[in-house]
C-alpha cells in the first residue's frame, strides 16, 4: 500500500497541492483524474520526489519514502513520464537501462539484468524488434518499449502519467490491458487518465482532484456518478448498460 498524507507542493513559491491525502491499494489500478492543471502529475511526481519543494508524509508499506536514496526509490517505484525522448539507441538498450538502479561496481550490466530485459520485451511483445532503433518504431511500439523498461526495473509500484496519450484506439486498449495484467500480477499501478469510459472499465480505485485538492475517492462508478464530477469538470456524465456492462459518455 502506498499512501500520501497532507501533501503540499510548491513551484516558485506558489503552492500547487494543498494538503492532498490518498491511499493506493496494492495489486489494483488506481486512477488520478481531474481537470488540466489540478495537480495530478504533480501528485505522481511527488511519489518519486521529482518536485522542488514538498511537505507531507509519503509511505510505501509503512516506510517513509523520504528516507530512501534515489537509487533505492527507483528499485521500488517505476515512473513513466508523459513526455519522453526518442533516444538514438536500440529497443534492447533502452530496456536494459531499466536495470540502471541495480548497477553496482564495476558499473556494467550482468547476465541477470539481460535476462530481465528479455522477459520484459517478451511480455510487451517486442522481442522481435529488440535490435531496432527507437526512432524507427511507431508511437505504440515506443510506448511498449518504455513500459518494458519500467517492467525491467522490477518494482512493486508503477506510475504512468497519461500512458494512452498519442496512441490510437487499439494501442490505448492494449496499453490499459497490460496495466490490468500488471495489477493482476500484484503490482500497484497508479495512472492518470482522462477518458471516463476507460476509467469506468479499468480503474479499481479513483481519486478525483481539482485545484490542488482531492474532491472525492472511491470505485470508478461511485466517483463518476458523484456530484463532485460536475463540480470538477462542469459536465454531465451519462450512463447506459449493455450486455458487457456499464458504459459512460459525457454531455457538455
Amino acid at each position: 500500500m502506498i499512501s500520501i498524507q497532507d501533501l503540499h507542493v510548491s513551484y516558485d513559491e506558489a503552492e500547487i497541492l494543498h494538503g492532498v491525502s490518498a491511499a493506493f491499494p496494492e495489486g489494483k489500478i488506481s486512477v488520478l483524474m481531474g481537470p488540466n492543471g489540478c495537480g495530478k502529475s504533480t501528485t505522481l511526481r511527488s511519489l518519486v520526489r521529482m518536485v522542488p519543494e514538498m511537505s507531507g508524509v509519503l509511505t510505501l508499506d509503512g516506510q517513509d519514502l523520504g528516507t530512501l536514496t534515489p537509487q533505492e526509490l527507483a528499485c521500488r517505484i517505476a515512473y513513466l513520464p508523459q513526455s519522453r525522448n526518442v533516444p538514438d539507441i536500440t529497443v534492447e538498450r533502452l530496456v536494459l537501462h531499466g536495470r540502471f538502479p541495480y548497477l553496482s561496481y564495476p558499473r556494467r550490466y550482468r547476465k541477470e539484468d539481460r535476462d530481465k530485459v528479455a522477459q520484459a520485451l517478451e511480455w510487451v511483445g517486442l522481442s522481435d524488434l529488440h535490435a531496432r532503433k527507437m526512432e524507427n518504431l511507431s508511437g505504440g511500439q515506443r510506448q511498449k518499449a518504455y513500459l518494458a523498461m519500467a517492467l525491467a526495473q522490477d518494482t512493486e509500484v508503477i506510475l504512468m502519467d497519461e500512458p494512452t496519450t498519442f496512441l490510437d484506439i487499439k494501442n490505448q486498449f492494449e496499453m490499459l490491458d497490460r496495466a490490468r495484467s500488471l495489477a493482476n500480477d500484484g503490482k500497484t499501478v497508479i495512472m492518470i487518465l482522462h477518458d471516463f469510459e476507460s476509467i469506468l472499465h479499468y480503474a479499481d480505485h479513483v481519486i478525483l482532484m481539482a485545484q490542488g485538492r482531492v474532491l472525492t475517492t472511491g470505485d470508478a462508478e461511485t466517483v463518476l456518478r458523484s456530484e463532485e464530477i460536475k463540480e470538477a469538470f462542469d459536465v454531465q456524465p451519462c450512463f447506459y448498460r449493455t450486455d458487457d456492462g456499464l458504459h459512460c459518455y459525457v454531455r457538455p
Binding site: 521529482m50 515512473y79 556494467r108 526495473q153
Partner: peptide, 22 residues
C-alpha cells in the same frame, strides 16, 4: 566507467531521475 550514466542522462531528465540518477 560512467558510460551507463551518460546514456541514462541522454534519456531525458524525467526518465533519468526515475531510474535513480541524480
Amino acid at each position: 566507467m560512467l558510460t551507463n550514466e551518460l546514456d541514462v542522462l541522454s534519456l531525458g531528465d524525467d526518465t533519468a531521475h526515475a531510474l535513480g540518477l541524480r
